[in-house]
């Protein structure tokens, strides 16, 4: 059993769990890269997500936002197969075709904090690895918090 992140990463690679059709048929979910979104002066955020060739994975697989709000995401399909993106957003998900070697833009709105998913919802892209996470960090506004002394959180 692995005991730290570095060992986990090494064993994932050794077993081929971070590749297509090695250990399993697909790539183990959430084994890709992690990236932070950047924030503009007005608080609006932006990020870039790619689909590398033959990996059937998002890069980054985990996009981290400093807080909830509006995010502009540029999507690049560097693969030689057609994919798409279904992104979470308040009001309704946003969906976009991503033809081979294409670039698209999606603007979404998310509350924070919490963890949301996004995917390419065609074929079995999701099961093979095109399933990612968007994590909104931060706290809720002060007036929405409970009127009580600060409470302990998990270690």
């Amino acid at each position: 059993m692995t005991s730290d992140a570095a060992a986990r990463s090494a064993v994932l690679s050794e077993l081929g769990l971070d590749k297509q059709n090695r250990a399993s048929m697909g790539r183990l979910l959430a084994t890709g890269n992690i990236e932070r979104a950047t924030e503009r002066p007005d608080g609006r955020m932006k990020a870039e997500i790619r689909i590398p060739p033959d990996e059937l994975a998002w890069d980054p697989a985990v996009l981290v936002l400093p807080h909830g709000g509006d995010i502009d995401i540029a999507l690049y399909n560097d693969d030689t197969n057609t994919h798409c993106a279904l992104m979470p957003s308040n009001g309704g998900g946003r969906w976009i075709w991503l033809p081979v070697h294409s670039r698209g833009e999606v603007s979404i709105n998310l509350d924070g904090p919490g963890c949301y998913w996004y995917s390419s919802n065609i074929g079995n892209d999701e099961g093979r690895g095109l399933f990612g996470a968007i994590v909104a960090m931060g706290e809720v506004p002060p007036d929405a918090r409970l009127d009580r002394p600060a409470q302990p959180r998990p270690d």
């Binding site: 946003r94 969906w95 976009i96 075709w97 991503l98 070697h101 670039r103 698209g104 999606v106």
Partner: peptide
């Protein structure tokens, strides 16, 4: 350097229904 094509515009998912 990849010469990207422009993807079709994103839509609200419910529009595809």
């Amino acid at each position: 350097m990849t010469d990207y094509v422009e993807a079709p515009p994103a839509i609200k998912f419910s529009e595809a229904s």
